[in-house]
Every structure is written in structure tokens, then in C-alpha cells.
Nucleic acid binder design. Structure first.
Length: 796
RNA sequence: GCCGAUGUGAUGGAAUUGGUAGACGUAGUGGACUCAAAAUCCACCGGUAGCGAUACCAUGCCGGUUCGAGUCCGGCCAUCGGCACCA
């Protein structure tokens, strides 16, 4: 009898569907466990095996938790708004709704074939009007609370196609569609004031269990820095030029100022600037570069001195030139810096290039060679001289600034406000009306959802407007406040919107009175364990934590943080070791694997292929090992003998393995249970109790095969059985091999009873013939013994 | 450039707290079974030298701490993820 996956796997999938085996229970007395995976974007290409790996980690945890007696919520849905779908629609003329529905169908079919234990009664789709109604609702709540505003920004604009482009579609400054040069263009867009939550987002990290590197990435993204705002007076007109610095202690070392090319002071005083044409030309040149490119090309600093603006150092009264340069960004701090070339690398390069003075104010480096960014004694710094501690120097500098009334301590965040709009069709319409009298007016809550209207074609409108701008019947409306003729906003929300709160909807996905009921939220939140890709740990996670914290502040959700725990899986690379991509043709379709090997082999392989958190290439040969492993498990049914108690020859191995697998699953280490099968083969037989235990721990990985074996051999449904327990005392061998080292090198081994003391071990080591031979005529200087592990003799 | 990670045999990777480097799998070699092949089973499997016991070398590179370093520290190199309009 061989394992016929082609009939057995669909049989159990049907059973699980019909019995709603994996649907979360309502009103359960069991403890809850909410496992969340990042819901997929349903692309036309269908799923690849990377999705399977991403979902399989918590799939195993969820199945284990159910056996451990938890009421588990393990939901699935689709993050379906997005550019690729819209681009397909433009290309083929098929409505994005139809494209999305087809893709979701394909994804669903693929997921079901793998036998994931998702709760299929709670599927959500962010493009469903019953869902995006609530996305719009939350947006309006933010609008109501002053977290939504409009401001100018630079966007990538293709003058030839007349569209706003994403960073991805404008790489290298060329339009992806027509290959003409992309320019940076100023546009007024929507923002969410996420910076208001910067500190809360940072503080909240103290209370959650994320992998340390994930926390660190988020901390760095928020980028809190403490420093000072300092006002420099402009000699010619008395204007205050406000700068932000983290090093107010270096104020005596300032020799010039740099402002962003877009800084408003230039336009304000353009009439009094002699070389305004040069500045405009430089600004235009910078406009071609994205912010990313600006910071990247540091090798050669560029800039132009402003003829007609001179800054005065508030501490020394010294006059200093003001430059514009693209290494200063309008989007961070105040868009202006004081340059201290002696102690900042970028300022140093700039000063060298433009021949500006470099004044040392901190001892310890050689400023003729490079900027010195380390600590040291303050020099050339008036009342700061002699202070050798950075912290004290900064404190003193702040004191002086405050006394003179020209500056104060301040906090800056690297995090920017969230540009919350796209000029595209396939997204949630922003529910705002522009009234000539009342300004921006919210669409009333009772009119939600504001539906996406049908359009003829999905090409972006001319001049960078959304296709919605072309729909007169959509655009023209009455002001909800005063009834006057008004215009609807035609931008849509970015793809991040729908995924910023989906974990809340899963708690109560069919509710049409609220995004979820208070009871459901109270029961299920927070998410106990969230797993996804490293590429989402900053943007998606920070955006969604922000939405959640806002909802918490207005009393709509019961927990301050959405995710109690977060882990991340590594990518599955193509067989060639490159990232899987359609263009490289190295994408592996899970359906092909299931056709040949079955779902259980695929599931076991993606988890056994290596470290779950690391990227690993797909390997056709590696998968064969997993097939052999499962075939050997299946064949154990031929070696079955009566008996429920573990027999002495397998007892330790079983207790050890149960303990190991129980712990390893929690640590997302999945690839270490194969060895037990080898041991069982060595023993030559397995009894009922032993087989039951082994099938139980394998069940989360290979649910179809283990269920078939268990139910046919023992007449019970395996996933209704409890997770096997182990006896700590029986996980250790009575006899242990200890290692004898001389000067740290392995020289001999001894099989000794477990738990031997240090002195006994050392005495034992001295009896060894090898040790005797090697220590002859020498002295043992030191002996180290680690019980049950090793003895090391230091010999001279 | 900045932030985060990774680097171990032919190969995917183990080594859970600083304590036997290479578990387990794949590939390979030899053998059993077979008319033969596949499948399956058994054995071997980091390098150099040696008949052998064994010795030396070996976890990207250079250095350090330690009785002992894949693991900790410093400095390099390479690769990957993110850098805010790809999701």
C-alpha cells in the first residue's frame, strides 16, 4: 500500500470544508489564539511557492495550538487594490473588478489544494464595498480628528505620458512606459499626520514581542533624534533662518550654512539675490533627481552660494556664507542646516570642495585629513572650552542658546507624514468634497461607501489626474454642508490603506453596523502572532500600528497595539538562486509541485528546506528527500506491533523528539524531526502508542497523510486529539559521552553515567591512556570540567 | 550613501546559554535485491600527509578576548532586504 495523495488529499480537504474543522468557534470557553499572516495581493501570475512558505509557518503553529486546546483564528483574505491589476485592465480592457475576482479564484484554488487550515468563513477582500466602506469610515474619523491635511510634495511626473509615476516605474529617472525623462513636479496631495504618532509608535515597541532586528528597523524608521532648533539672523534683511542640529555643542565650529534648493527663503528674497538665475538652474537640475538619488551620490558635493544672504552666528556674531545644496532635504528638520565641517563628514566634503574654513572645536582627530565625529575636549568654543563630555557640552550649549533667546532644545523624527493618495482608478475613493464656500467637506458617514464609479478606460487622466476626474457624474456633486455645487475629490487611497486595519475586520468580517463589534474585538485582539516578510516590517507595520493606535485613542479598539508578536520568514529564491520573478522565468507554481508530489510533500519541504527566517533557493532535488521521508513514515504502518506504552528502545527518542518539536515549532525551527524515523527503522518496529505520538507531532506539517493513517488505523480523527506530552525525566540518556580535551583540542571520549561531578570527571580523564601519554613529563596547569559535556586540561 | 541582516563541505543547511564543527537532507562512491532499470535497503562521504595509529589545516578575510570562538569584540570584503507612489 503506497500513499495515494491524489485521492487522499482531496478527501480530507473536502472533509475539513464540510465539517468547518478550522473555523474559529463563537462563544468558546477555550483560550483564544489569533494567528495572522500577511494577506496576499492577488496578482495575475497566481501564487508562487514563496507564499506557501510564508503561510506555512503559522499554519503549523495554528494546527498545533488547536491540538493544545486553543480556539484559533487563522484567517485569510486578499489585499486586492493595486497597480498591477489596473495595468492589466489598461492592457486588456477587462474591468479591474473582473481581473481581481478571477485572481482571487485562482489564489483560493491554490490555497485549498495545499490544505491550509484557514477559516474560510471569514475571507475578506479589500476591494469589496462592504470592506472599503470601513476603510473610508476610518479615513473620515481621522479627517474629523485633524489627522488629514493637504500639502505640496514632489512627485515623479512624466511630461510625455502626463502621469504621476511610482518610484518603481521611474527608476533611473526614466519613465517605464515611454522611457522619456521623468521630472520632479510639485503637486498638492493628501497627507496623514502620522508624525503626530511618532512618539507613541516608538514607545509602543517596548510592550510588544517583535524580533529584535524588526524593532530596530522600526525605531530607525521613526528615527527620533534629540537636538536643538537654532535661529540664525540673516544680515541683509533680519530674517531668522531656523535650523535643526543634533550637535548644538559644535556651534563655534559653524563656518557656513546650507539650505535645501526648495527652501522658501529663496523665493521670499529672490529680488535681492544677485545670482538668482544660477540658483534656479541648480534647483531645476536637482528636480530631476529623486530624494533617494540625492542622498546616494555623496561622492561629489554640489551646491551654489547665495549672493545676497549672509547668516550671523548667534554665539560668535561671525558672518557666514549661505549655500544651497541637494544634500540638505526640505523634508527633514527645517530644510536648513548649520555646517560644521570639522565634525561632520558631509559638511567636510562640501567645505573642501568650496574652500571654506574648517574650525576644530573638538579635540581628538586630525581635521586636515578628515572630519572628526568622535568625542573629545571642546576647544575654540568660548564658554564651552574644556568640557570633555558630549552630553555636558550639549546641555551647556542649550543653556546658552536659551539665555540668548536664539534657540531651544527640540526633537526631530526622520519619519515623514504619510502621502496618502494615488492618481489612479483601482483604489478606495477619498470621501471628500471640495466646496467653493466650505472648503474640504467630509462625505457624511451614512453615505458610505462612496462607490468607485464604472469607467470606460482606466488610463490615468491627462496632467497627472486620476481617471475619476474624467467622470463628470462622479465629480459633480452638492456640498453636504451647504448644498452648493461642489467637486468630488478624484484621488484614490494608496494600497496601504486596506491593509492598515484588515486584522480588525477578521474579528467580525460580516458586520455591517461597524468595522467589527466591540465584543469580537475584545475577544480576539490583539493578534497573538503576526508573521510576514521583512520587506513589510517598516511601512506596512508602522502604517497599520498608526491606524490602530488612532482607533484606540478614539475608543474604537480595546488594545493599544495590534500585534503582540511579530516574526518574519525569508524569501524563497528561484532554483538559480535569484529572487523569483516573472521576467526571469524562475517562478515555481505550487500547483505543479502538488501535481507531482502532493500537498504534504510541498508543505514539509518549504519548512524543512532551511532556516525559516533566511532566504533559500528552491531545489527540485531537496524536495525528493521530503518525499522519501513521508514515504518512510507511511511505510511504518507495515511495522506496526500492538501496545500503547512507549517501549524502552524508543522511549527516550520519542520523549526527546516530542520535546524538541514542541519547542522548535514555537521558535520557527521546523527542520529537525526526520532523525526519529531513522531511529524507528533501526529498532525495526513501532507500536500503536508510539505511532500515534509520532503522527500527532507530524500532523501540523503533513496533515493529509497523518490524518489518513491515524483515522484508518485507530478509528479516530487526529486533529481532534491532544498534542502529545513528554516527560522531562525521560528525555535524557542515562549514559553520556563526554569529551576530553587537552589545550582545547579533542583527544579522547568517555561514556559516563549522567550527572557526574566535576572532580569525578577530571579524575576519570586522568585515567585515560591517551591523556597519560600526552601529559607525560608536563604539568597540568588548569582543569576545567563541564558536567555531562567535557573536560579540558591545560597542559604546559 | 543610510538602516537591517547574512556568509559553514560538492550542495540546502545543523550546532537552542562560549564547550565534540558538519546533525538531517540532496548529490556522489561502493554493496544488496533485480535478467536489467527504477524504487527500496546497507555502508562510506571536509581537505592535506600517512599502510596505519595519528598529525596538521578548516565556519568570507585580518586581528583581539578566552582554558576553549561558527558563536563574543574591533576592522575589512561580498551578497541580500528596506529607504517612504511596487505590494
Amino acid at each position: 500500500m503506497t500513499y495515494d495523495f491524489k485521492t487522499i488529499e482531496p478527501k480530507w480537504q473536502k472533509y475539513w470544508d464540510e465539517h468547518k474543522t478550522f473555523c474559529a468557534e463563537q462563544n468558546s470557553k477555550k483560550p483564544k489564539f489569533y494567528a495572522l499572516i500577511e494577506f496576499p495581493y492577488p496578482s495575475g501570475a497566481g501564487m508562487h511557492v514563496g507564499h506557501i512558505k510564508a503561510f506555512s509557518g503559522l499554519e503549523v503553529v495554528s494546527r498545533k495550538r488547536r491540538m493544545e486546546g486553543y480556539n484559533v483564528l487563522f484567517p485569510i483574505g486578499f489585499d486586492a487594490y493595486g497597480l498591477p491589476t489596473e495595468n492589466t485592465a489598461i492592457k486588456t480592457g477587462v474591468h479591474p473588478r473582473t481581473v481581481t475576482d478571477n485572481n482571487i479564484k485562482k489564489f483560493t484554488q491554490q490555497l485549498k489544494r495545499v490544505g491550509f487550515s484557514f477559516d474560510w468563513d471569514r475571507v475578506i477582500d479589500t476591494t469589496d464595498e462592504g470592506y472599503y466602506k470601513w476603510t473610508q469610515w476610518i479615513f473620515l474619523k481621522m479627517f474629523e480628528h485633524g489627522l488629514v491635511f493637504r500639502d505640496k510634495t514632489l512627485v515623479n511626473y512624466c511630461p510625455s505620458c502626463k502621469v504621476v509615476l511610482s518610484n518603481e516605474d521611474s527608476q533611473g529617472g526614466k519613465c517605464d512606459i515611454c522611457h522619456s525623462d521623468v521630472v520632479q513636479r510639485t503637486k498638492e496631495v493628501w497627507y496623514l499626520r502620522i508624525t503626530e504618532y511618532a512618539d507613541k509608535l516608538l514607545q509602543g515597541l517596548k510592550d510588544v514581542d517583535y524580533l529584535p532586528n524588526i524593532k530596530l528597523q522600526q525605531e530607525n524608521w521613526i528615527g527620533k533624534s534629540t537636538g536643538a532648533f537654532v535661529n540664525f539672523t540673516i544680515k541683509e534683511n533680519g530674517e531668522k533662518l531656523r535650523i535643526y542640529t543634533t550637535r548644538p555643542d559644535t556651534l563655534y565650529g559653524v563656518t557656513f550654512m546650507v539650505i535645501a534648493p526648495e527652501h522658501p527663503i529663496i523665493d521670499k528674497y529672490r529680488d535681492s539675490i544677485a545670482n538668482i538665475a544660477d540658483l534656479d538652474a541648480y534647483k531645476a537640475e536637482c528636480g530631476k533627481k529623486s530624494e533617494f538619488e540625492r542622498t546616494q551620490l555623496v561622492k561629489d558635493k554640489t551646491g551654489v552660494r547665495i549672493q545676497g544672504l549672509t547668516a550671523i552666528n548667534p554665539l560668535t556674531g561671525k558672518e557666514m556664507p549661505v549655500y544651497i545644496s541637494d544634500y540638505v532635504m526640505m523634508g527633514y528638520g527645517t530644510g536648513a542646516i548649520m555646517a560644521v565641517p570639522a565634525h561632520d563628514t558631509r559638511d567636510y566634503e562640501f567645505a573642501k570642495k568650496f574652500g571654506i574654513d574648517i574650525i576644530e572645536v573638538i579635540k581628538g582627530g586630525d581635521i586636515s585629513v578628515a572630519a572628526y565625529t568622535g568625542d573629545g575636549e571642546m576647544v575654540n568654543s568660548g564658554e564651552l572650552n574644556g568640557i570633555s563630555n558630549k552630553k555636558d557640552a550639549i546641555a551647556k550649549a542649550l543653556e546658552i542658546l536659551k539665555a540668548k533667546g536664539c534657540g531651544e532644545a527640540g526633537v526631530q523624527y526622520k519619519m515623514k507624514d504619510w502621502a496618502f493618495n494615488r492618481q489612479r482608478y483601482w483604489g478606495e475613493p477619498i470621501p471628500i468634497v471640495h466646496c467653493p464656500k466650505c472648503g474640504m467637506v467630509a462625505v457624511p458617514y451614512e453615505e458610505l461607501p462612496l462607490r468607485l464609479p464604472p469607467v470606460e478606460n482606466y488610463e490615468p487622466g491627462s496632467d497627472g489626474e486620476s481617471p475619476l476626474a474624467k467622470i463628470d457624474s462622479f465629480v459633480r456633486c452638492k456640498c453636504p454642508k451647504c448644498g452648493a455645487d461642489a467637486r468630488r475629490e478624484t484621488d484614490t487611497m494608496p494600497q496601504w490603506a486596506g491593509s492598515s486595519w484588515y486584522f480588525l475586520r477578521y474579528c467580525d468580517p460580516k458586520n455591517d453596523k461597524a468595522f467589527a463589534s466591540k465584543e469580537a474585538l475584545k475577544y480576539w485582539m490583539p493578534v497573538d502572532w503576526y508573521n510576514g516578510g521583512m520587506e513589510h516590517v517598516t511601512r506596512h507595520m508602522i502604517y497599520s500600528r498608526f491606524w490602530h493606535k488612532f482607533l484606540y485613542d478614539i475608543g474604537e479598539v480595546p488594545t493599544p497595539e495590534p500585534y503582540a508578536k511579530r516574526t518574519a520568514q525569508g524569501l524563497v529564491l528561484g532554483p538559480d538562486g535569484d529572487k523569483m520573478s516573472k521576467s526571469k522565468g524562475n517562478v515555481v507554481d505550487p500547483n505543479d509541485v502538488v501535481d507531482v508530489y502532493g500537498a504534504d510533500v510541498l508543505r514539509v519541504y518549504v519548512l524543512f528546506m532551511g532556516d525559516y527566517e533566511q532566504a533559500a533557493p528552491w531545489s527540485e532535488t531537496g524536495i525528493k528527500g521530503c518525499k522519501r521521508f513521508l514515504d518512510r513514515v507511511w511505510a511504518l504502518s507495515d511495522k506496526l506491533v500492538p501496545g500503547e506504552e512507549f517501549r524502552p528502545e524508543l522511549e527516550v527518542a520519542l520523549h526527546k523528539t516530542i520535546k524538541k518539536v514542541t519547542g522548535d515549532i514555537e521558535a520557527m525551527k521546523f527542520n529537525t524531526m526526520m532523525a526519529l524515523v531513522n531511529t524507528i527503522y533501526e529498532v525495526g518496529s513501532i507500536n500503536h502508542g508510539e505511532y500515534k505520538a509520532f503522527l500527532s507531532i507530524l500532523n501540523p506539517f503533513a496533515p493529509h497523510m497523518t490524518e489518513e493513517l491515524y483515522s484508518s488505523l485507530f478509528g479516530k480523527i487526529l486533529n481532534e486529539q491532544p498534542w502529545p506530552s513528554y516527560d522531562e525525566a525521560k528525555t535524557v540518556d542515562n549514559e553520556i559521552t563526554v569529551v576530553i580535551q587537552i589545550n582545547g583540542k579533542l583527544k579522547d571520549k568517555r561514556l559516563v553515567p549522567a550527572g557526574l561531578g566535576k572532580d569525578e570527571l577530571i579524575a576519570l580523564a586522568m585515567e585515560s591512556d591517551r591523556v597519560k601519554a600526552l601529559t607525560e613529563g608536563k604539568t597540568v596547569v588548569k582543569s576545567i570540567a563541564v558536567p555531562d559535556k567535557l573536560i579540558n586540561l591545560v597542559v604546559k
